[in-house]
Each structure stands twice: as structure tokens, then as C-alpha cells.
Design a protein around this nucleic acid. Sequence first.
DNA 1: GTCTATACGTAGATAGAC
DNA 2: GTCTATCTACGTATAGAC
Lengths: 195, 195
Amino acid sequence: MVEILNAAVQAMADDGVAGMSLSDVARRVGMRPPSLYEYFPNKMAIYDAVFRIGFEELNSALRTAVADWVVDPLSAIRNGHPVYMQWCIEHPIHAQLMFWRPVPGYVPSPDAFAPSIENLLLVKKIIASAVELGQLEEGAASEEGFGLYTFIGSGLITQQLANDPQGGFPDGQYSRHTSAAVEMWISRYSPDRSL
Amino acid sequence: MVEILNAAVQAMADDGVAGMSLSDVARRVGMRPPSLYEYFPNKMAIYDAVFRIGFEELNSALRTAVADWVVDPLSAIRNGHPVYMQWCIEHPIHAQLMFWRPVPGYVPSPDAFAPSIENLLLVKKIIASAVELGQLEEGAASEEGFGLYTFIGSGLITQQLANDPQGGFPDGQYSRHTSAAVEMWISRYSPDRSL
DNA sequence: GTCTATACGTAGATAGAC
DNA sequence: GTCTATCTACGTATAGAC
């Protein structure tokens, strides 16, 4: 089960996310293709498992990094963002599946989508909390503020994965600007911009 | 030739960029698959043509929008960015091919890459010019400044295409924040931040 | 649970007639 | 230039033996 998923991710790394084939996965785990159907009902179920597990692991990494967000949400944002970036850049296959739509015909199931929504809600709560504590202006918690926050994340990941896939974190040609990107967002909604 | 490319883009829209098949394209133009080989040596050449033409058209739209960048580069940035966004969101298939890597095994040829580089250079020149005229601080023309500029663009496009593909420009769930995103970047490098 | 055998479809590409 | 015919390969998936 776990070995099959690991092999599938490896196969996607070699042939592209959409290029993964069951024969290839079976070969990697030392099985014949039909045996895979004991573990997954069809090919899309493998994508779905990778998608769901990706968000679960990302959420887990995030929650650890922002454990004390209740007392200092702004620091949680500063700490959490690089963790988010690092996870995505170190799991480029999961990230492609989670943030792009690279596989024709694959749509995440509601079940797989749940942790993705959980992820969004956590970020929203942290931002709202930073506003309540006066660490950020009200605009940060608006639709615009949240939108701008997600842009810098997805933009950074997209650029790094598409244009410098070999560069990792934190030294990649794009990922090295992670902090600068968060600070740009924070300073836009900072109540003490004159300092 | 042109009809074939249009049909190919339509096919990609229906079945995913990576899911386009020559049989489908041939059917759409009323031909048999072998006839396509009179126009393109293989399937990847079709992707390459779409990639190259995409950047050519985007560059053309951009150049028109920023025609007077020499006299007022900051306004050119403000005017050019929405044009860039609009073109990408109205040409989602081209944009996916240009900014993501959705097709296993397809790598843009140097020939197709040329207009992409031209695009980057134009943006860099405009930003550098804004710095020279004192419209932006020096940091805007640094690697960081340019990196942050590209993030907000690719992030916005990525979010809009992946999560709200039906929403267009300028009313899409994400694209509606185009101006706010540029202003966030501009204000970070604005010499008169106290105003 | 894993296998062999196979169904069934489709893909990209080429040969060669017209 | 466009076609028919075909090659070769691979894909997902299922039936049924062990």
C-alpha cells in the first residue's frame, strides 16, 4: 500500500504526473499490474490517495510550525510560510497534483479534498487572529488580503517547480525569496508602516 | 496549419493539455491522422508551436499596452500587468503550457523559448527604467524585486486557472485582485512610502 | 493475494497508393 | 496532400487459475 504509493510518486517524477502508468508502478514494486487492483480500485484512486496524503502531511508540518499561533499569530505566519514552501518544494509531485490540475480527467474526491479545506481554514484563522490582536490591519483578513497571501505562495511554488525544478529549498532560484515575499505581504497590512 | 493548431488547443481544452491526441485533432479538422504529418513532424511539434505562438501573442499584447514605457515606466507596469493577466486567463491552454510543465516529455525547443526570454527582458528593462527615473527604489530592479514581481503574476494565474477555471478576467475569484497585487509590489519599492 | 492470459481500446508513426 | 492500411507499442482493466 505505502510502497505502491511511493512507487507511484517515483513513477510520476520520472514520466510526469500525467504520465504515470500502472505497469510502471507494478514493475517498481515487483508485482504484475493486476495485483495493484487489490489495493486500489483504479488508477484515479492512486492519484486521489497521493492528493489526500499530501495535504495531510502538509497540514501536519504546518501545525507543528505554527503551534503557538494563538499567542503570536504574526510570528506563526512568518514561521509557517517557509515550512509550507519547503514541504511543497521537497514534495514536487504532491505539490503539482495539489496545486495544479496536471491529470486529464482526475478531479479530487470530496474525501481527498477535506484536508485541503482544513488547510485553508487554519491559515484564515491565523490571519484573523493577527488582526484581532492588532498585529495586522483589518484588510489582511479580507478576501483581498487572503487572496494576496495565497498568490505569493502559489506563485513562488509554481515558479520554482516549473522553471528551476532542480533548485531546492532554501537555495532555489525562486524559493530563496520566500521571506521577502512574506514580508512584502505583511508590510502591506502592517499597522505601523511608518517604522 | 492554423486550423490544426486551433483544433489542437480545443482538444487540449476538452481532454487536458497532456491528453491531446492526434486522432482527436485530425477528426476536428476533418482529416485522417497521417495527414497531420504533412504539417508537423510529430506530436511534440504541435506543443512547441502552441508554446511559441502563445508567447508571441502575449508579447504583442504587452508591447501595445506599454507602448510609452520609456516616458513613464511605472504607469507601464500598472497598465501592462492587467493586460498580461487578461491574456493568460483568456488563453488558459496556452498559459498552462507556457507557465507549467503539464506534458510529460515535452521540453520547449530553443526556438520556441526565444520569445519567452524576450518577454522577460522587456519586463526587466521597464523595471530598470522606473528605477532610473526615481519612480521605484533600487531594490525593484534587483533579483529579489524581479522575483517578487514574477511571483504575483504566476501565483495569480495559477490560482485562477487551477481553482476557478470558469472565472474569467477581471471578475474571477482570483483575477479580481490583479490591481491590488501589483500595488502591493509597487508600494514595497516605492520611494515615497510615507505618502 | 498474486499470478497468467487476455480483452479491448488507443496511441504515435510509417509505407505506399492515388 | 490526402488517403487506406498497417505496424508496433502500450495503456487500463477483468476473468479465472493457483
